[in-house]
Design a protein around this nucleic acid. Structure first.
Lengths: 157, 157
DNA sequence: TGATTGTAGTGCGACATCGTACTATATAGT
DNA sequence: ACTATATAGTACGATGTCGCACTACAATCA
C-alpha cells in the first residue's frame, strides 16, 4: 500500500479494535445466562481479578464508564444476589462492593462456558501471535487513559 | 509471569480490546456534533469507504449488528438528510442506501475534527507500533468472522 | 462551630440496542 | 398457478447507557 499517514494508521487500528470488541462481546454474551450483559460479567470478573471491597466510583473509573452506568450495573447484580453493597465505614457518602458466593459461582460458570470457545479460537489462531500484540495494546491503553479529559466532574468517560 | 494458557491470553487480549474500543469511542464521539453516535458515523464512513447503494441487511451483516439496530441507525441518518433510502429495483422487499452530499460533508467534517486528536496521539505513541499489530488484528477478525454462528435467521450478531 | 465548596451515589429522562412478532414480497415445490 | 416457505424491513417493548440535577455527607476554612 502507498503512503499511510499516522492518522490513517490510527483510524484503521481503531476500526479493527471496534470490530473485534463487537465480535468478542457477541462471543461472550452468547455464553452468559438469559439476558446477562458483558458489562455485568466484567464487573464480577473485576471484583475477583482485581479486588472487591472497592467503591462504585472507583470501579466506574476503572471501566471508563459514567458513574450512573455503574450504579445501574451494580443494581442489577445486587438484585440477582451476585454482589452485596455495604456501607463504607470510611466515608458515609460511599459504599463498598463485595462479591457474594453466588457471584463467584456465576463467574466461574461463565468462564467455564467460554473456555471451549477460546480454545477453539486458539486452535485456529495461535495465542502467541496475540501475546505479541498485548504489550502494544496495553501501552496504548495507558497512554489514552492518561490523555483522557481529566475532568474532575461527573463524566468518567 | 508464570505459565499462561492460550485461553488466558485470549481473555486478556479481549479485555484490552474492549477497553481500547471504549476509549476510542469516547474520543470519536467527543468530536461528533451534538448527540451523534459512533455507529452513525461508522455507517456513513462505510458508505464511502466500501460503497453505497447496498441494502440495509447487507450493512447490518457487515457491522455485525441485528437488522433492527441498522433500521434505527438508518432512520436517524435519513431524518438528518445524511443518507437517502431508495427502493430496490431488484427486490421489492428491500431498499438501497445512498449517501447524500450532506452526508459526505458531515463525514468529512467529522474526520477533520478527529485528525488533531489522532495526531496528538501519534505524537505520544508511534503509529508504527500499531501498524505492526494491524495484520494480527485483521487476521483474527477474519477468523472470528468466519466462525460466528452462520445463523440464517434474525440475529446477525 | 458555621459557611462554603467538593464529592459519592441516585432518580429521572432521552436515546441506543436488540429480541419478538408482524407485513410484504420473493422463491421453491408441486 | 398455487401453496408453502424463506427473506427484507419495521413496529414495539424491554433493557442498557449516560447526561443532568439533586441529596447526603465530607472537607476546607474562617
Amino acid at each position: 500500500m502507498p503512503d499511510t499517514t499516522p492518522e490513517e494508521t490510527y483510524f484503521a487500528f481503531f476500526t479493527e479494535v471496534g470490530i473485534l470488541a463487537q465480535l468478542s462481546r457477541a462471543l461472550f454474551e452468547a455464553r452468559l445466562p438469559d439476558g446477562f450483559t458483558l458489562s455485568q460479567f466484567t464487573v464480577l470478573n473485576h471484583l475477583i481479578r482485581v479486588k472487591d471491597g472497592r467503591t462504585p466510583l472507583e470501579m466506574a473509573r476503572a471501566f471508563q464508564v459514567p458513574k450512573t452506568s455503574m450504579t445501574h450495573s451494580l443494581a442489577v447484580l445486587e438484585r440477582h444476589g451476585l454482589i452485596r453493597l455495604a456501607p463504607n465505614l470510611q466515608d458515609g457518602r460511599s459504599k463498598c462492593v463485595w462479591i457474594t458466593d453466588a457471584g463467584r459461582t456465576f463467574r466461574q460458570a461463565a468462564i467455564s462456558g467460554m473456555t471451549p470457545d477460546l480454545a477453539d479460537l486458539a486452535a485456529r489462531f495461535p495465542a502467541l501471535r496475540l501475546a505479541e500484540t498485548l504489550p502494544v495494546l496495553t501501552d496504548l491503553r495507558q497512554i489514552m487513559d492518561q490523555m483522557r479529559d481529566p475532568d474532575p466532574e461527573q463524566r468518567s468517560r
